[in-house]
């Protein structure tokens, strides 16, 4: 099996500079992105997953999220947050997926193509928000935080998380809560148990849920408590959640 490659840091920087100066915008519409193979490194412990590109589905984020997670389930936290790794995937291994899933700059729908490409092909910073918003690392982290090996269907809660991409990549990352797996599982379990409640205004309701739990974090150490705590707290505000959107 072929070992996984990543870009060198300096090359990532150069790619960013080329984009910023608009010299390379046109390259992001090509069928293959031209890159310098001398500017890559090999990860000694990670193998390139077989047929990952084929498994990525530009029309279904859940399928893609599971595929990318299964392909790279051995990543350490350090590797899974490495800009060089994700930038290599967006430009090389999964470039064809990227130009199908994130093609507003090609279709002429992006107001600012340079900004659009920067936001989708690169990690904007080393923050939690940036990692979870990135079109590929956000998929991996979404599964990592929601997979529950104790269930018959370990992806049962992941399916809820990816009901709306914004929930996984925008709403949850806003708070520290979003990096506590027990909190994520508690929230998703509550949504699963109250499916009817979340049929409409899903985005507004999930935003309320995360904001509410974050407030509780002022007096309770949220990393200390498990999923039952979060489910219990949310059960108490069911009526409030119900009212969202109905006023």
């Amino acid at each position: 099996m072929e070992k996984q490659k990543i870009f060198k840091s300096k090359y990532v920087k150069r790619l960013k500079e080329n984009l910023k100066s608009r010299h390379s915008i046109h390259l992001y519409s090509e069928q293959i992105f031209p890159f310098d193979d001398d500017e890559t490194l090999v990860l000694s412990t990670i193998y390139k997953p077989k047929d990952l590109l084929k498994k990525m589905n530009p029309d279904n984020d859940l399928d893609s999220a599971i595929a990318i997670y299964e392909g790279y389930r051995e990543l350490t936290l350090l590797q899974a947050s490495d800009e060089r790794f994700w930038t290599y995937l967006t430009h090389v291994d999964l470039y064809q997926y990227m130009i199908k899933r994130w093609n507003a700059h090609i279709e002429g729908k992006a107001k600012n193509p340079e900004k659009y490409i920067r936001e989708h092909w690169f990690l904007l910073s080393e923050s939690q928000q940036s990692l979870m918003r990135h079109p590929l690392s956000g998929l991996w982290w979404g599964v990592h935080l929601s997979i529950d090996e104790e269930r018959n269907d370990k992806y049962e809660l992941t399916k809820i998380l990816f009901r709306q991409l914004d929930f996984a990549t925008r709403t949850l990352p806003t708070y520290r809560l979003g990096r506590h797996k027990e909190a994520i599982i508690g929230i998703l379990e509550f949504i699963k148990n109250n499916d009817e409640l979340f049929r409409n205004y899903f985005e507004d309701k999930t935003r309320f849920v995360t904001r509410y739990l974050n407030l509780i974090g002022g007096t309770v150490n949220l990393a200390y408590v498990d999923r039952t705590f979060f489910i219990g707290k949310l059960n108490r505000v069911k009526e409030k959640i119900k009212q969202i959107g109905s006023r």
Binding site: S127, Q128, R179
Partner: peptide, 13 residues
């Protein structure tokens, strides 16, 4: 002691 690392999403008590 709660340890947090925003760059790797590490959070543990």
């Amino acid at each position: 002691v709660e340890v947090n690392c925003s760059s790797t999403l590490f959070r543990k008590v």
